[in-house]
Amino acid sequence: MTAPLLSVRGLVIEFDTAQGRRRVVDGISFELGEGEVLGILGESGSGKTVSTLAVMGLVEGNPGVVGGEVTLRNGAESLALFEGLEGVIKRRAGKPDRKNVRRWQRMVSRRMRPLWGEMMTAVFQNPRHSLDPLLTIGVQVEESIALAERSLDRAGRRARAVEWLDRVQMSDPERVYRSYAHELSGGMCQRAMIAVALARAPRILVADEPTTGLDTTVRAEIVGLFEDLLADRRRSMLYISHDIREVLHLSDRVIVMRHGRIVEEATAEDLRAGRGERDPYTASLLAAAELGEAL
């Protein structure tokens, strides 16, 4: 494999809570190659969502990322997202000062701004809340298209938007084009969100628990949709989930997180085949998945 598209080194994330400082991500490292699907598996609170938000420069809260580095490679250029982090965070009585935290969050956001969408974009859980409630689905897909394909005129954008809605397997793309989020089911909202994200033509798609809260059959459809859309391996994906079967089904490689650390890293094939020595936590997840299949 050539140099990875995304590499994360020793990422540390902390938050202040009422019970004091809590370390939610404790020095994790991983890489994502071109055209690769990396599954991140973990139960809620394992730090998987917040680490992927950090990769996108979207972590908010106090103080957030306190150490480590995220490197994004865009063609020949590469960008170190948290470069100079230690220099910016001033500590007062051992705690990062609130004002400085804001300053570095602005700095990261400025660095990341040209890369959002272009380099990577995301779909989240709660698809209904991911769409602007006041705009039709069509307008929101077109907003992405306008950014990705600047040469298209209005009619062209409209045609492309309907095309995307068709590609995410909407049964009536024309109707969905005119619909608002509150008029669609959760599954349809997630498809619409996937269309909005992919129409932006990102090199990396971050899918953060995209099936959580959906019905079982709809979940299978969404997973199938991801499989189809990524079949050509032209983009990479970070697929975050707590469901080991989804992760195994979609990913090339899998990392398993627990309590803010990576406890396991393996190819999906090895995991499926049961090859090699496993961390006890991974083993229990696999056993649970087998039980699920047996039922």
Partner: peptide, 21 residues
């Protein structure tokens, strides 16, 4: 709001969305 994060993540301007809402 999550949809504003989503708008940011796709690299679009959030001002219009926030103003409208």
């Amino acid at each position: 709001a999550q949809f504003i994060t989503a708008v940011r993540a796709k690299g679009a301007r959030t001002v219009g969305h926030i103003a409208r809402n």
